[in-house]
Design a binder for these strands. Structure first.
Lengths: 143, 143
DNA sequence: CACAATTATATTGCAATCAATTCATTTAAT
DNA sequence: ATTAAATGAATTGATTGCAATATAATTGTG
């Protein structure tokens, strides 16, 4: 019965792939209000927390590479939410730093997690199990 | 402590998003061998099962719309794995049908699920819980 | 010091994705 | 029967994402 393995319903990856897309899609109306895309939003989330870090480190946090981050960061810079400047100690490093305007954006975003939580309606227990399992897989794959 | 909600570590969506990407990435070397992308692969999976269906139905199976599917299906057609033809009864419907070559491709793909399973190393119990939770979320969101 | 290897970012090209719009066909309403 | 509404695909434009390559700066070795 090897054929059964190639049915969509028997894949673990597919619901993972589809669910991630659909959940990200739920953010859109809320993110539209503050003119951010999902990727820009999670980037800002790291910066609200860390204030300043280089592209390499940011990429590790977000599982994204410079090919994705470079244009995205340039856009955030143009919007005035971040500064991009080469490190003085090591000019290979580009340091990304949040601006005052970037900090202020956090206020406007503060309700988003609740709004998303409301539409996911997953019991706290189950959410925790899901969270742990996802990170377990993520760490296992770890490059 | 509303600020804590906006930390990456407190998000459920982020590990979902990152994990999906990383797992899909695991498929690449195997899919490269048969010259398919992940999206083309799951499309073929539906067709290996259903043989023939219209774009609308296919899109519902895969959580994808015609904007993504149209160019993808044209590529699969060019590769000779599928046929695309308008329905005679209702010409609005484009019927996608698997070809002999498409059926044969299944043989070459038959080992992929095992290979991915091997590198995910998730206990069967946990995999089932994850699977169920993801579909629960997916159905809840359901358009 | 010179040169090779490494590291960090940027660039390019291609596939995927979605939103919004357009186009053609079918169905429904009067 | 004509027109309006709906349905299904295709198209367009913007963003994301990755792989591969390029460029520049730094480090290590002799």
């Amino acid at each position: 019965m090897k054929e059964d393995m190639l049915r969509l319903e028997n894949q673990l990856c597919f619901p993972l792939y589809a669910c991630a897309k659909e959940v990200v899609k739920q953010y859109k109306p809320y993110l539209d209000e503050i003119d951010l895309t999902y990727t820009q939003y999670i980037t800002m989330m790291v910066l609200w927390d860390k204030k300043s870090l280089n592209v390499k480190t940011l990429g590790k946090c977000l599982y994204l590479d410079s090919g994705t981050l470079t244009p995205l960061l340039k856009k955030l810079e143009k919007q005035g939410y971040i500064k991009r400047e080469r490190s003085v100690e090591d000019e290979r490093n580009l340091i990304v730093t949040i601006t005052k305007k970037g900090e202020e954006l956090k206020e406007k975003a503060s309700d988003i997690p609740n709004k998303i939580g409301a539409c996911m309606k997953l019991p706290k227990e189950d959410a925790k199990v899901l969270y742990d399992t996802l990170y377990r897989i993520l760490n296992q794959i770890a490059d």
